[in-house]
Simulated assay, not measured.
Amino acid sequence: MEPTFLKSILDNDFYKFTMQHAVIKLFPRAKVRYAFINRGKHIFPPGFAGLLQKSVDAMANLRLTKDEKHYLYHYCSYLDPTYLDFLQGYSYDPSEVHITQEGSEIKVVIEGFWYRTILWEVPLMALISELFYKTNLLIRLNDEAIKSLTKSKIDNYNSLGVSILEFGTRRRHSYDVQVLVNETLNTFGSQSFIGTSNVHFAMVNNKRPLGTHAHEWFMFHAAQFGFKMANLISLENWTKVYGGDLGIVLTDTYTTEIFFNQFDKKCSKLFDGVRHDSGDPIEFAQKVITHYTKMGIDPKSKAIVFSDSLNFEKVKAISDFCKDKIKMSFGIGTNFTNDVGLPAMNMVIKLNDTKPDNMHWQGVVKLSDEKNKNTGTPEMIALAKQVLGIK
């Protein structure tokens, strides 16, 4: 059995690069640990860790090409030229990734400087997913069936008149399936498909990459500045780096309720909108509309990016509710890139521990709007809830 090899250093979600740029500027000495979580209790066959290790080792050979650098310079003017020079000289260091296997369980831990290790999460998950299907000899739908299925989906979204994004890199069935999906979306989605979070595929299709930041941005800030100040300082630091660019905010690291209590008028006006990633999407939309109205801001001038396990039925229900109330777009992941006639994997790689400059190692916490998406030790979760006044 052959390992799987990535073809481009840009085969990653855009928010990893935007956060890396910000970390280099603000937290160059911070260290972190990430860990793989097998939520779906998937069974990995003997030798899986060895194949994954070979795939990881090969990533050390990836480099940003001149054409890729030119693409980023042209489409992402808010990324400093010094960062693009850094990225051109950057290479993955496989010694930062520790992979072991006991029976059918694998353990993956990433550790090192945050500015370096931040790029591992998404491609590692993509490799784990592709190798899982390959090593278990699971047969997917053929290419024509995948293209036909994707076309029927984008035809439905076209009929709704909504904006659709492809967010499916981390849990894709394979690179080849993501190629098929993006080709089909670009061919038939002119009315609704606006692009992808995958920088490599955005470049291939001559589109602007899409994304802003992830939960780890807020989780790190909580470790350095405390739970009560995490949201506010996270937003201030994001503004310090990007001004008014990349203005979609993730709200649910410490519950949306807490976030909106701290999302003051200045921030509400400055940022373009918010991203929904957990909890009931209709309830979330109503909270967002109510918040902007309370701030004296026309909700129709703002946007929500919905991105939580979406399919056509969910998108239609959300669209029906939000229409003529607030702008909206929909980031669809697994339903595009891993709907191939096999059960999709349920896994994550999450930030576990941080070591801010001149501080000790400490665990981090995420308090999602869905209880089963909380991460952190029970003690740290309890502490965060106590500090934030969450019952």
Rank of each mutant, 00 (worst) to 15 (best):
V122I: 12
D85P: 04
T184W: 03
F167Q: 12
T135G: 00
A202M: 05
L185K: 07
I297R: 06
K207T: 12
I110N: 04
N311L: 11
F260T: 02
G211V: 04
L388P: 01
Y73G: 05
I326G: 01
Y83G: 06
M59A: 13
M347A: 13
I99E: 06
Y34N: 01
S163N: 14
G279V: 03
T334S: 14
N61G: 09
T253R: 04
E144A: 10
K391D: 14
Q178W: 03
S197T: 15
N61Q: 11
H215P: 07
H98F: 06
K41N: 15
K7S: 14
I24R: 15
A303R: 13
N182D: 12
H360V: 14
R170P: 12
V108M: 01
K25C: 08
H21M: 00
F113V: 04
S301F: 01
A202E: 05
S268R: 07
K316V: 03
G243P: 04
T337F: 07
D13K: 05
W238M: 09
R29V: 02
V109P: 01
K314S: 10
H98W: 00
T239K: 14
R29E: 14
F5L: 14
S197A: 13
E102L: 08
N374S: 05
T239Y: 12
I381D: 11
I326K: 07
V365I: 07
Q53G: 10
G331S: 13
K371Q: 11
R39L: 13
M328F: 08
I390N: 05
H276L: 04
K325F: 07
P28V: 06
Y175M: 07
S8Q: 03
V97H: 03
L6I: 13
I99Y: 05
T251M: 11
K269G: 05
T150S: 12
K107C: 12
K25M: 11
H21S: 07
T239D: 07
Q286V: 10
G279K: 00
K153F: 11
S91T: 14
G376Y: 08
L26A: 02
S174L: 08
V364D: 09
S268D: 11
N237S: 08
K373Q: 12
E379S: 08
D324Y: 09
A222R: 03
L124Y: 00
H70K: 15
K240T: 12
S368Q: 00
E283H: 08
L342E: 10
I110L: 03
C267M: 15
A35K: 13
G103C: 01
E96T: 10
A214G: 14
K287T: 08
T117M: 00
E96Y: 02
N156L: 14
D85N: 13
D277T: 11
N338M: 10
K371N: 08
K207D: 05
I233C: 04
P45M: 05
Q286P: 00
S197N: 09
F167K: 09
T212H: 06
L87M: 15
F225C: 08
S368T: 00
K269L: 11
E96R: 03
G247E: 09
P28Q: 06
